[in-house]
Nucleic acid binder design. Sequence first.
DNA 1: GTGGTCTAGACCACG
DNA 2: GTGGTCTAGACCACC
Lengths: 131, 131, 131, 131
Amino acid sequence: MQHSSLLLQLSPSSGEPIYRQLIEQIKRMIASGQLNAGDYLPSVRQLAVELEVNPMTISKAYGFLESHGDVSRIRGKGMMIAELAHEENVAARLQKLSPLAEILVQQCQQLGLNKQQTLEWLTHKLEKELK
Amino acid sequence: MQHSSLLLQLSPSSGEPIYRQLIEQIKRMIASGQLNAGDYLPSVRQLAVELEVNPMTISKAYGFLESHGDVSRIRGKGMMIAELAHEENVAARLQKLSPLAEILVQQCQQLGLNKQQTLEWLTHKLEKELK
Amino acid sequence: MQHSSLLLQLSPSSGEPIYRQLIEQIKRMIASGQLNAGDYLPSVRQLAVELEVNPMTISKAYGFLESHGDVSRIRGKGMMIAELAHEENVAARLQKLSPLAEILVQQCQQLGLNKQQTLEWLTHKLEKELK
Amino acid sequence: MQHSSLLLQLSPSSGEPIYRQLIEQIKRMIASGQLNAGDYLPSVRQLAVELEVNPMTISKAYGFLESHGDVSRIRGKGMMIAELAHEENVAARLQKLSPLAEILVQQCQQLGLNKQQTLEWLTHKLEKELK
DNA sequence: GTGGTCTAGACCACG
DNA sequence: GTGGTCTAGACCACC
């Protein structure tokens, strides 16, 4: 049972609304199995304190996740990852990176970069953070 | 010299405001040398028709570029790439991809993907579009 | 005299809290004489099992009914329909449908339906269930 | 083009959240053709003043309608009834009364009322308000 | 304890 | 002008 500090990172000034960032990040954590069916999300108030945002902002994100069937509201207990939210395989998870890849390709074209230059640089970047 | 159809791709529904998409894309094309000092941008009206966007939106983007010194408004002729807008070297251009790389790393972590899986997939994606 | 399965139908997902549904339904059954003074309500545990609801929820409803004088808590025996809970005449019972009628009228107006269409359809619906 | 006072009636104390009441009522008005594709809803601020509720409450309702495809947000102009929102025939509209009819039947049963009594009374009620 | 709703008022982004 | 987001703080309902 998961009930506390998730690996959530907000960019309050990114233009992307905070509640949207939360939705997308939590969805990814469900897809990857870091959050499993039956786990509980942190409570609205707790997460609001941790992330230093207004509880209503958290609530808005949770509401969206509920209305899309990703989590279920359990009266008096909190928000539980829905049963039908299943762990997806690696290929399916990679697929979720597609929108990013499209942007990457477009920006590389406009910067006049070639494939090799880009990949070397990306490899360097990823090595610092991922294993 | 350059006065017509640029390689601009808009995502009207992406949340990213259209005029902002234009600014960033044109800046990248200047940085990469696809647009050179002295070249003219397409006219507001022409670009508005091409991209099926309100002329005000184009105008707003051009105004932004002018106020940041990237282009100069030449009365009666249009918007010209400014003299001081210099072609940057490859390293500097790659640096412009950094924000994207940060998002990429974060999404990979949340999707539970490792470096190798991600790079193989990205290589595949880039090969289809870049040379 | 009456001690078991009442004609209670719950809509757990209806927004209307469960304990409130219980209260209103039991009150109507008292008003109509389907539950008479001296009858006993099903035990909290029994009803909880039948309706697949948390016993606390039943208990809350019973507590409410007691505090409003509709039933009396008889130690060691259960909840008994109170003496002063009287059978109301038909007109009074129909009056209890008024809130529903108001909603019905409003929804018909917004759906652009006229009186005749609505009544024909309601007649059809009622015929299937009532005698 | 519709841009002002709709026939909306709120029951602030009904338990049913205000934004939900708005959603359901507007949906019904679309179904009945009182709001047609291309019409604009009143602006958030205008409706907030008319109904004496907080603009955010209106905005919440509009957001839901948009996310369900009933209306489209037109930048700088407001919320427009979506093209695919079609006028439904009478039978389909009557069908939307079904949830109400089920509650009606249940309450009549529990009040020990018969079909004839109920219909006479409903006829009387409807005559006063509908034509 | 849990989430849900609402208010009042502020600021932002877009056209 | 339009809608969107966020805050701070209040109150409610359910368990």
